[in-house]
Amino acid sequence: MARVKRGPGGATNRPDALAPGGMVATPEPSGRAAAGLAVSALALPPPDSAIRVTVEGDTPLVLDVVPDPAPADGPAAGALWSVRVLPRSDGQPTGSLRVEVVVDGWRFEVTVEPARRAALRERMQRQAGGPALGRQVVRAPLPGRIVGVWVAVGDRVAAGARLCSLEAMKMENEVLAHRAGTIEQVRVEPGARVEHGDELVVIA
């Protein structure tokens, strides 16, 4: 498991599994962040040099990383990776940069920005009132063709209810409701072609 040592950011955590220079500052030096768990609310103010890294995914991985300018022990031998700058996307915070990181064949889209700036933005968002819970937008889990829509606007659905069927490549896949609610919008009809991430149904 992780070796813990002191770094410029105070309590830092330097697991063996991390790639070169990676120092992960966590609220407690518990090593949980390195295990891939999201750490979204950081208690300590980030040091000047820390970088907020958001690895996109179903559960985004959010870490404040203090890059080690000269790592004493070198990178994990055998690690394979590449980094490439991606074009900006909608809603991307100013001053941040999106990159593609490929490591051991896994491809990630990662947003990086100074941790201080990210912390400031979050504080302002909190003061302005947090995002309202409520509507769930059900998106296409994979590209394909809609072969059936099983709900209409106004229907009440239970969690796990079938919303529509999506034929992708070779199989029919059922798209299910993740929670109970009322169907507010149906954005597709049978026969429609959808791309991964397209909105299918909105549950209010």
Binding site: P15, A17, L18, A19, P20, G21, G22, M23, V24, A33, A34, A35, G36, S49, I51, V53, V55, G57, L61, L63, V65, V66, P67, D68, P69, A76, A79, W81, V83, L97, V99, V101, V103, D104, W106, F108, V110, V112
Partner: peptide, 13 residues
């Protein structure tokens, strides 16, 4: 993903 985060930070710096 944890490794990608460290790589991204290192590259960024």
């Amino acid at each position: 993903a944890a490794r990608a985060a460290a790589i991204a930070a290192t590259w960024t710096a």
